[in-house]
């Protein structure tokens, strides 16, 4: 196993760890805001770590820039959708404070 492989592996594993943490947060946290908090923060970092792991593995600048793009788009989408969900939840707080936020 070369050093590059080692770096790739550790980055990927770290990324997976953050994904796991984010998912546990999504499942276990009490309300929408906490869940979003767990999900966006942990998953964005996880995505970054996975992307950088793959970038190290590929070593091709075209792939690296594509991975960077993927991360940026993921970041943007997560930010905006989390914002919209949070806003919706905030506005409809009186309706459904506790239950899952289903589209009913």
């Amino acid at each position: 196993m070369t050093p590059t492989d080692l770096i790739t592996l550790s980055l990927l594993l770290a990324g997976c760890g953050f994904y796991l943490a984010g998912t546990v947060g999504l499942l276990r946290f009490p309300d929408v805001f906490c869940r979003l908090h767990a999900l966006t923060k942990a998953d964005n970092l996880g995505l970054f770590l996975v992307c950088s792991g793959l970038a190290v593995h590929s070593g091709d600048w075209r792939i690296v820039s594509l991975l960077l793009l993927i991360w940026l788009v993921g970041l943007l989408a997560a930010t905006v959708s989390a914002h919209l969900i949070a806003r919706h939840a905030h506005e409809h707080e009186a309706d459904a404070p506790e239950e899952e936020n289903e589209l009913r």
Binding site: T79, V80, H83, L84
Partner: peptide
Amino acid sequence: TPMVGALLAVV
């Protein structure tokens, strides 16, 4: 919200 416009402008 202004964020939607920003998202669309990129996406």
